[in-house]
Computed example of a mutant assay.
Amino acid sequence: MRRLLSINPWLYLLLFVLLGGAVLAQQYRLFERAWFSVQEWRHGAQWREQSLWLGDYRVVIEARPIADIRDVSALTYDPDRSSLFSVTNKPARVIELNLQGELLRTIDLEGFGDPEAIEYVGLGTYVIADEREQRLVKVRIDDGTAVLDAADFQQLSLGIGRNGNKGFEGLAYDAQGQRLLVAKERDPVRIFEVLGFPHADESKPLALQVNTDPKRDARLFVRDLSSLDFDSATGHLLALSDESRLVIELNAAGEPVSTLSLLRGQHGLQHGVPQAEGIASDQAGNLYLISEPNLFYLFRKPAD
């Protein structure tokens, strides 16, 4: 009897450790990630030919500081200017970068509470997401733009599942489908599909539609969403998670097909990406990523 009593505390400790490990594994979606790794290994040869296949990417520029900028958030590629745009919220600004991560200019934002994302949607036209207000603002930017006042532009407030500072965190645009994809950061992670905004023909009534895909969102084995990017060549969506240190490629059916880890030692990274906030791609398949406070990354597939 004494021997059994002496063993019991160790059994309780073991059970506590196992239970705690299971809770953490569930919280960090480790079971889903492990299962996806098996699927990725099994179907790699087939999926590689039909996707970006993020596993092949290697870092080319790592953690290059962006001048004296702070609080960078989101990233989008402008094919007309061959440059990148991001936003900061302290102070509220749009910044333009070249493809090596060098600062080209800044544009002040007025009337924006907490700008968290910017997305190119057409020649000189962008959408900026205001996180706390869950507001989308269509803006115009040209060579002479120095200030953008939200009051001057078309706006859309959705107010879906308001949750403090866990609102709209990322944008992507499917030009062919004319749909704006909007990421809700967490609690829960969601991707909304907005049709009808930005309003292309203001002479006609606004026909707005907001769709969700619960099955796709449930497949996102990440703790949060920081940014989105739509690849027109494949029709696939890239979803960036800061807390999970991961980029997931989703096919047109919303199924994960490849991943890019942002941890130290992966894809040639000498150090882990500290706080990934934005991702964008260009027509050549290059991937651009930014991290707070002001770090720039470029990932590229090695030449065959």
Rank of each mutant, 00 (worst) to 15 (best):
L30E: 05
D108Y: 01
S73R: 11
W53C: 11
G20V: 12
Q100V: 10
F36Q: 00
F85W: 12
F16S: 15
W53D: 10
Q100P: 01
L19Q: 06
L103G: 08
V94D: 06
L54I: 13
R58H: 07
I61H: 04
E49T: 14
N98L: 11
Q50C: 04
I95D: 06
R29H: 15
E49C: 07
H43M: 05
Q46S: 13
I95Y: 02
L30V: 02
L75P: 04
V38D: 01
Q100N: 12
R29T: 02
L84W: 14
P65L: 09
D108A: 09
R64L: 11
P91F: 00
L109R: 08
T76P: 08
L75D: 08
A45N: 11
G101T: 14
D78G: 02
E40D: 13
E62S: 10
L18N: 02
F85N: 11
R29A: 08
P91M: 01
W53P: 05
Q27D: 06
Y57C: 04
S83Y: 05
A22E: 10
W35Y: 01
L52F: 13
D108K: 06
G20W: 05
D78T: 12
A92V: 00
F36W: 11
R33A: 05
Q39T: 03
D108L: 09
W41N: 11
F31L: 12
D71Y: 12
I69V: 15
W35G: 00
Q27M: 02
F36P: 00
T106Q: 15
E62G: 01
V72I: 15
Q46A: 12
Q46T: 04
Q46M: 03
L24G: 07
A45Q: 09
E40H: 11
P65Y: 13
L99N: 08
R42F: 11
A63I: 05
T76D: 09
S83R: 10
W35N: 00
G101C: 14
W47F: 14
S51I: 12
P91Y: 00
W47A: 11
V94H: 12
A22L: 04
G20P: 00
P65N: 10
A63S: 13
R48H: 08
K90W: 04
S51M: 12
G20E: 02
D56E: 14
S73M: 03
V94S: 07
H43I: 01
V59Y: 06
R58Y: 06
N98R: 13
A67D: 14
A25W: 00
G55Y: 02
A25I: 05
